[in-house]
């Protein structure tokens, strides 16, 4: 256990040190890995542990990014750069609150119905963000440049993404070890039996969604700042929702290392190997997913770790 914590800390420290040693492009690739890995791990708290697959998790990226955008536009007239940490936190909190509101009706749905309902929520929220003029999604929103003079932009955002990845790993590891996490596993395996064993299934499902949305919202807000200018199309992205699931599936769903491994493979594949051939991304993603589903349904981790894990459909 302690060796695992130590290994994780070393891994994060090496990641964080990258800007001192590698050129800007590689730093951006590593930041992208942190962003995708953390997103997938946040998704995994609900999807992997509790077995409730969300097909629309990008809604929390979008809400997380739009909230600071709107606040900055309405209250600070485009300024407020020094408030970035607070604005990111508010983005996460509003995402979490939004999740809390939709959780009650949505988490009564099981399996594929929940997944589709989340897709619908993401679609509708995205449309609304573009349609409501007051929010400004149609035209877009500017986020202030918060990068300190002493730092290169890619280094600044890299440090934040590494920090958020550390936070997400910490949160997921805590959940996994806690009574809460064991309850989520019970829900994933058989929700009726979980109820009989006195697992507070309703409360746990809501808590898992809210925690997942909070982390996703923080990531979305930071992503918004790193773009500097956001529109509906740049943050309410269906491919984000899809990637979170694909990374978890590739690496090993329901584990902690799995989603990170999946994200790493996809980042290397799409940014490094196929970097020049943009139109091949989707093809490569699709081919890899099909191959994995056929050859290693438990993900890369399942290939060398014969840990028991049922091959399950999304949800019960």
């Amino acid at each position: 256990m302690t060796t695992r914590i130590l290994a994780t800390l070393v891994f994060l420290a090496v990641l964080a040190a990258a800007p001192a040693f590698v050129p800007p492009f590689e730093v951006r690739v590593l930041s992208l890995f942190c962003f995708w890995g953390a997103l997938s791990l946040a998704w995994n708290i609900l999807g992997g542990f509790a077995g409730y697959w969300s097909f629309g998790h990008t809604v929390f990226v979008g809400v997380g990014a739009f909230v600071p955008g709107v606040i900055v536009a309405k209250l600070f007239d485009g300024g407020g750069a020094e408030l970035m940490p607070l604005l990111v936190l508010v983005g996460g909190l509003v995402s979490a609150a939004f999740a809390g509101i939709i959780a009650w009706p949505l988490l009564r749905l099981r399996g594929i119905y929940f997944a589709i309902a989340m897709l619908g929520v993401a679609q509708v929220t995205g449309e609304l963000s573009a349609a409501i003029e007051w929010i400004g999604g149609g035209v877009g929103l500017s986020l202030p440049d918060a990068v300190p003079a002493a730092l290169a932009p890619e280094a600044f955002f890299h440090y934040i993404f590494v920090g958020l990845l550390a936070l997400t790993i910490g949160a997921a590891a805590w959940v996994r070890g806690a009574r809460f996490g064991q309850g989520l596993l019970a829900i994933r395996e058989d929700e009726d039996t979980a109820r009989m064993l006195a697992v507070p299934t309703e409360g746990y499902k809501i808590a898992a969604l809210v925690l997942s949305a909070f982390l996703t919202g923080l990531l979305g807000a930071t992503y918004g700042f790193s773009l500097g200018y956001i529109t509906t199309d740049s943050v309410f992205r269906t491919d984000f929702s899809l990637n979170m699931i694909v990374h978890a599936l590739l690496g090993g769903i329901g584990t902690i290392a799995g989603p990170l491994l999946g994200a790493a493979v996809m980042v290397v594949l799409t940014q490094v190997v196929l970097g020049e051939m943009l139109n091949l991304h989707l093809f490569a993603t699709g081919a890899l997913v099909v191959a994995m589903v056929l050859l290693a349904p438990q993900g890369f981790l399942g290939l060398w770790r014969r840990k028991p894990r049922a091959q399950r459909e999304p949800g019960p």
Binding site: R179, G183, L185, E189, T193, A194, P308, A310
Partner: peptide, 18 residues
């Protein structure tokens, strides 16, 4: 109806935890 994806001990431990 044991939890199929968990070990025997994990199954029993969830009973004890709650």
């Amino acid at each position: 109806r044991p939890f199929p994806g968990l070990t025997v001990r994990q199954n029993v431990r969830i009973g004890a935890l709650f």
